[in-house]
């Protein structure tokens, strides 16, 4: 049994390890594979400004964790966001790492 949780901290994904992006990825993780959420809906649920959300989405996009698509619903342009497979994997790893930090004994 080790009481040094410090090395695990370095394994936490720096892309997700920021409050705002953790919130974005957590919310997106509710969507089922291949479902996309409308940007305004995501913004409203997260209670973030459009600018702030855009900045974080861009960073997540750079890491290929989310995919942002622009489309049209009739005549109105719509921006849709989804979590990529890679993003979901990173999120699962991140939560697993957090649980391991909390319960080091349960680590196999």
């Amino acid at each position: 049994m080790s009481d040094h949780s410090e090395p695990l901290v370095t394994e936490l994904d720096p892309v997700i390890h920021a409050q705002a992006r953790l919130r974005v990825v957590s919310a997106l993780s509710v969507l089922r594979d291949d479902d996309r959420i409308a940007f305004p809906q995501l913004q409203q649920s997260l209670n973030m400004t459009a600018g702030n959300l855009s900045v974080h989405l861009r960073k997540l996009e750079d890491a290929s964790y989310v995919e942002v698509t622009k489309t049209h619903h009739g005549r109105t342009p719509a921006t849709l966001v989804r979590l990529t497979r890679r993003g979901r994997l990173a999120f699962d790893d991140y939560t697993a790492a957090l649980r391991a930090l909390l319960n080091p004994k349960e680590e196999p």
């Binding site: 370095t10 920021a18 409050q19 930090l101």
Partner: peptide, 13 residues
């Protein structure tokens, strides 16, 4: 760990 920007990190696990 190197943060990729100055956004506040989550507080604890």
């Amino acid at each position: 760990m190197t943060p990729i920007d100055d956004d506040a990190p989550p507080l604890d696990p």
